[in-house]
Design a protein around this nucleic acid. Sequence first.
DNA 1: ACTGTTGTCGAAACCGGTTTCGGAATAGAT
DNA 2: ATCTATTCCGAAACCGGTTTCGACAACAGT
Lengths: 354, 354
Amino acid sequence: MQATETAEPSALPERVRIVDLAAQLGLTKGTVSRALNDHPDISDRTRLRVRKAAEKLGYRPLSHAQAIRTGRVRSLGLVLQVNEHDAHRPFVAEFLAGLSQAASAEDWTLTVATAGSDEQTLDLLDRLTVEKKADGFILPRTKLHDPRIDFLRTRGVPFVLYGRTEDAGGCAWFDIESEKSIEDAVMLLAGLDHKRIGFVPGADGYSYAKLRHDGYLAGLARSGLSHDTQLIAPPAMGRDAGAAAAAILLDLPHPPSAIVCSVDAAALGVYDAARHRGLKIGTDLSVISYDGIPETTLLDPPLSTYRVDTRAAGARLAELLIKRCRGAPPEDLRELGRAAFRSRGSHGVAPAKA
Amino acid sequence: MQATETAEPSALPERVRIVDLAAQLGLTKGTVSRALNDHPDISDRTRLRVRKAAEKLGYRPLSHAQAIRTGRVRSLGLVLQVNEHDAHRPFVAEFLAGLSQAASAEDWTLTVATAGSDEQTLDLLDRLTVEKKADGFILPRTKLHDPRIDFLRTRGVPFVLYGRTEDAGGCAWFDIESEKSIEDAVMLLAGLDHKRIGFVPGADGYSYAKLRHDGYLAGLARSGLSHDTQLIAPPAMGRDAGAAAAAILLDLPHPPSAIVCSVDAAALGVYDAARHRGLKIGTDLSVISYDGIPETTLLDPPLSTYRVDTRAAGARLAELLIKRCRGAPPEDLRELGRAAFRSRGSHGVAPAKA
DNA sequence: ACTGTTGTCGAAACCGGTTTCGGAATAGAT
DNA sequence: ATCTATTCCGAAACCGGTTTCGACAACAGT
């Protein structure tokens, strides 16, 4: 015996292809394929026989080999915009967990990319679409006029919004009715005898920012409070901007005794501004916010906020998108959920007039 | 004209296939393919002509159609273990950004899945491998004896560790030498006259936990301090566990004047424990930690910590894995980096003896 | 017994690329 | 001018599945 070990050192455990399975069963690969895909022209006896053999031999089709004929790769696309407002970072892991879990349950996968700008986002959507790396897309953080929607709609690519949009034609979505929560917050504060309630909006352009703003106005109206535009601060998505926004409100001749924030990250800044002015949160100044980021429990006092179950949202979105990719009409794929109020120490009865 | 609008309302803009391109050029698809893939048997003139035509017509190959012959899908796999220690959540977005950006640069994509247990992780690796959803994998948070490594190694699937391992055969990796940072932290504190320096290790099993523990010991040795095993707390990966660990150290008959934490999330708990005992961080008790999570700046005083550039790490890992998938030997794909010290208010000179 | 369905499967085309092989044209050597 | 090398491209096989089409058998109806 000569040392002719030219071959691969470790013989890889050969993949089982559909022809192997077919040969083993004495059938043709076409028949096996139809049996596995539940075509009606295969007898129950054969279908069962094929299934069992496939199970035994551990046959699983190569997804890209299927895709070449079916045109479907069984993959959900997600383009995340990082960089910008990092207020949303903490959600990412939970969101992915939800998406991925629901996708896995249907034997789909998740293809994610990150972009630093709107333009790059569209580039990535284009690339993923034309190279067919994904069958459809999840669009988080919907904007009022969202270029992603136009882009995908004109190309006939399936998508589901995490959010809502005005021009709803052809759109499927899942969203949390944050406007209802903000409305609730205002009414809650009004019930605690607050007469002047400030509001820190989210960044312009995002549809949820407008909705929450509407919710604030609805809360005022239902509480019978007058609407003073001075009580609406400039938009704030982060801690620093939140502090600046709160400063404007608190330095008013007739400042608010409570502030409602569109996002937790801005509320962090409200704490800063209040501390800087010697105001005690929860007594001198009430704060209620929205999102439910982890940091809210770190604050002193912990922040009262409406918590969104981001993982559940991701899971539902994945399910909707898969249905969409399978041909369900978008009109049937629209759902709404609610955030849960976490009542903590940052709000209380309005202080008596000095 | 009759209303025979039975066809699709919007005629989708037909994809350009390689045969279309070939027909346009008066060549065969085989030749076009070879030209696009830089085969040596194509003249420069033709290659250029094909490239320009492809550009003009916007031809881009279907990735799964290529894959059927090449066996490569140009996708990096990432299975994240959520659920467990949520101490790592904040990194996820940054990590993904790094991975995705570097992958995009090479025209690869990222396939991510999340698992809730080791077993589920292996299941997902199996599924992604056999269905060929990814060409290789990034393995974050390497364990001392990591089942993922065994799994992929025996199957001949490429992978890159974010971390290091003892049984290095066939392993490529990128890692931050956190042990050096911990060692530095101990020496820094020793230089500030701290004689008793406590340590809160990371969770058992993770290779970095062992490395950081080693770094602590090395720091003591180089500072000429004795090693008192009482000063080593139980492992802690989160805030509550960190508080419990710190409690043990601070309630010692002869407590430490400084504590080094393996992870920031545990340091959060050290603050709690100190506050509870009326100790002022930075004067009564010095704390230095590791990771650089965003919350560290929220604390009072802000936490001195070694910050890891998670995005850069992700980018480097993606580059290494792509090289590995292209056939580079793993021994050539091993790199190390360093964390950057963020000196803030949580450490100071050791208090004088009472 | 003869035709008409229906059920079941084999054979072959097909999807959109890549790769192998061989042949024609051109260049270089004698 | 002839012969060999080399360059460059066409033709066809190939990858691993899915889908279409038609053949054949069994069964029902008259």
